[in-house]
Design a protein around this nucleic acid. Structure first.
Lengths: 388, 388
DNA sequence: CTCATTAAGTACGAGACTCAAACTAATGTC
DNA sequence: GACATTAGTTTGAGTCTCGTACTTAATGAG
């Protein structure tokens, strides 16, 4: 896992190694010839790169696939279990940790209530001690937070809902993985990244992730990359003036989208009370909706306002897929159907492909999973070299 | 201007050559040592690259800058006049052409009324014959159109306002520059690119361009790159539900932003009539506003609705700078001031830096200029090699 | 069973590139 | 005029990719 700064011919090798790794992630187990065709490199070059990766323990040769004429190819696959990343999430009322391996397998995934730096540190320590040992290499670690992260990917400029002294957390992180810098990233951006790599938007270049809790947040993926904006504020869509223009928002203004479709607005619409977590609350609402038409009507109203805002966002961003997470996921079509109808009404009829609205399939650990995946980013771009 | 497909060590050289060219564009005339410092390459490498570029005619050595201790550096600068690109625009009622050189100097820039393929071809032919000769090399050409361009950067999926048979234009282009493919691009995206390279958003990584004519369009620049969206529809913001929800839009729906701030809505607000072009119309409105409070009040209303939509866009995209073009440019602060006030009211107070609203400084040829600049893109990334 | 056929993977030499260090060149300072 | 200082070039070593030729491992026809 050396990080070299030389810009010599080794940079070319690292870049090509990244291309091979990306191809393996995309294609699954592949022979050297298949990798050569996909990457455009020469057979010989791929052979050398694969040999290096094998020695480093990053790929492993599988049994040959016979059946066709000629010498059978010997597929290589990304090797799981050896190179790991840690993804953490520190949220308002819970902390999560995910350990991911190079093959894309989720090695560990856990959450627990809590909101203090100590909770996070304990969870991370436990997770690390259980899954990271002498025969594994920790490639990187990323922490997802519900706040505005500066361009340095390390410090938080603004986190209104996080009642933790930031310098404290920052120090905790240093003690957690000594000598290794932990990147910090926005939670909605991480969740969007998770959806585009492991969730409902796999293989989609342009997607949008919308999460509903007390607040509303979005993560924008354009061409496979998370969009941050000038100050890291991109995707903070909760306070767009959308929906009921008289609804009072927590921010003091009226007419924010959040005031129409945030968790509390949804609960008011169905006349129910909040349980311990947004997900559990939404599950209870979904159950009650089966028997109570009034609840369905309330969700219909919420869904229309969701669709109204998505019409805005689709006009601006033109995503192929919109993934709805947070409390929207358990409610599924109860909210998505009216949203789709509103979207159909409001989108320009000439727009070729309406974005596909899908509920999130990842659970509460979505952001932590995305954080872990992001730590693999430098490996797949070739910035970071894997070594035994 | 060979385009090589080999992925050998020459790719590394091309990439490094691109880095040197970018540095020269950004820093202006620089010595080899300065370029080495900026790019991170070794002095020797920069020396070889600069020698190659000089032989190709892409850079030229300037007089030395003495005055300090030691051997004086001999700055090299991008050489204008030799490598050129052609930018074209085919719009509803005019056609434009811009010739740009490698140094970023606008060699030629002209517009004329017209909307047919023949008008475009004639203008392009004249421009080319006047400025592209035996001692110059045409690097590329790009055509900007008010419509939806497919991912192939060559064909148009949808251009409602363009009353030209598209296959016809496509054929015309082939005859124009034989053997060279002309890229096609969206006009708002081109104008946004022009503003970020030559206009009011130079040096800004995240900017937004908003143009007002009969319709409203936006171009989004994120990290210096134009954002296209899944189907090339990103930035088609005219039909977002913003502003007067009762206003009837040309699309048949009510409440589109365009119906509140499009040229016709603005004229209705100030009770004036349309002249031959949006720019000329807006100039007349600006003159009349000096003496007529009613006109100023009308523009105030339009400006507030501009600000309302920009609040949406800023929440989603977080741009550092918003450039307002089209009819907004001549009106300047008459529209921008109320827009700024509305933006201040509607943006989350925690947002660190409010986007800076600036009128466009580029005229009617903005899109054609951006189209020309885009043709230099592959040169500065190292995809396309300049050769004598 | 033998051998041609087919396709995957490897060995090797040529060519291109970057880099660090040594070297040359040009200027100001004392 | 010697010397310090900085710019740029030369040189030799080390890497990398590539095309070609070769080896290896399977199938199928006779």
């Amino acid at each position: 896992m050396r990080q070299r700064s030389t810009a010599g011919t080794e940079r070319l090798r690292r870049s090509n190694t990244g291309a091979v790794l990306r191809a393996l992630r995309r294609l699954g187990p592949s022979t050297r010839v298949e990798l050569a065709r996909d990457t455009g490199l020469a057979k010989a070059t791929v052979g050398v790169i694969v040999a290096d990766l094998e020695e480093a323990g990053a790929v492993i040769e599988e049994g040959s696939r016979p059946g066709v004429r000629g010498r059978p190819g010997r597929p290589v696959a990304l090797r799981g279990g050896r190179f790991l990343t840690l993804g953490l999430e520190l949220n308002v009322d819970y902390v999560s940790a995910v350990v991911l391996d190079l093959a894309g397998t989720i090695v560990a995934s856990s959450s627990r209530p809590g909101s203090a730096g100590e909770d996070l540190r304990d969870l991370a320590r436990t997770t690390l001690s259980e899954h990271v040992g002498a025969d594994t290499r920790l490639v990187g670690a990323t922490l997802a937070v519900p706040g505005l992260v500066r361009g340095d990917n390390a410090t938080v400029a603004w986190a209104p809902n996080l009642h933790v002294a930031w310098p404290g957390v920052s120090d905790l992180l240093e003690t957690l993985v000594p000598g290794r810098r932990i990147e910090v990233s926005n939670d909605a951006n991480c969740a969007a990244y998770a959806e585009s790599h492991h969730g409902a938007a796999v293989g989609v270049a342009h997607s949008l992730y919308l999460t509903g809790t007390v607040g509303i947040g979005a993560g924008i993926v354009q061409d496979g990359e998370v969009m941050r904006g000038g100050a890291g504020f991109a995707g903070e869509v909760g306070h767009m003036p959308v929906g009921d223009s008289t609804a009072l928002c927590g921010c003091g203004r009226r007419g924010c989208w959040e005031a129409s479709i945030g968790l509390h607005a949804m609960l008011a619409a169905v006349d129910m009370v909040e349980l311990d977590t947004p997900l559990r609350t939404a599950e209870a609402v979904a159950v009650r909706a089966r028997t109570h038409p009034g609840v369905r009507a309330g969700l219909e109203r919420v869904g229309r306002d969701v669709g109204l805002g998505l019409a805005m966002l689709s006009n601006v961003l033109d995503p192929e897929v919109v993934v709805l997470g947070g409390y929207f996921a358990p409610l599924g079509d109860l909210v998505l159907e009216p949203a789709r109808r509103t979207l159909d009404e409001r989108l320009p009829s000439q727009m070729q492909v309406r974005p596909d609205l899908r509920p999130s399939t990842l659970g509460i650990e979505a952001a932590a999973l995305g954080a872990a995946e992001r730590s693999f980013g430098p490996v797949f771009t070739g910035e970071l070299e894997l070594s035994a």
